[in-house]
Amino acid sequence: MREFSRYVDRLIRRRRPQPFVMTAEEAEAVRAAIAIRAATSDEQEPRPEFIAGLRERVAGSAETFDPPRVTAPRGRRTFLIGTSAAAAAAAVAVAADRTLGGGPERPAVSTALDPADGGSWHRVLASSDLPGDGVVGFETDVVSGFVMRISGVLSARSGTCTHQGCRLGLNAPEKRLACPCHRTSFAYDGTVIRSQLPNPPAPLPSFHVREVDGEIQILLPRE
């Protein structure tokens, strides 16, 4: 109760609230506090200084606006400034870029980052999260994706759309990974099943995946 009260207090006093470990009931109450505060606050409009300052920062990151890009290593470094959302999209895009070469003669299904390039194994799930056949989403600090066990065979694929980096959702009944942004969906093997785009996006990159000591791990580029 003390931490909850402090959280609400800071919200009311226009200060950044402090994180704390909360119960589900407290989470509900915080949600109402935010709704009420947001609707009654005089800070609903952005400060002009904020808009100007952020414009400067975005200018620094926008040099690559044209043409379609994401080339390592510069782009990668830029994106890693952001937190996981940006970094996830970027890291996968870099992996895709390396493996696909970005050329017109894309392989039907892209291959993963080669372990010979260097990289390290990261735990993404416990084996018990995917005991039998199925598909489960995961995310690390830098990437998000899906691990599939199909007829007992394990594979892993990026969960970031190759078009504009939107996060894919799992449509288990239809066995596809669907992009919410442009009505595009991918088969579990990464190929495009359906797309409203004039030029369908590239297939989804895969990750090297292995199962060791009750863990499912994927290979990620070393930082």
Partner: peptide, 12 residues
């Protein structure tokens, strides 16, 4: 965070 992540990735 949104702009810094999104702007460099938007196609013209």
């Amino acid at each position: 965070e949104v702009f810094l992540a999104a702007v460099p990735r938007v196609r013209q």
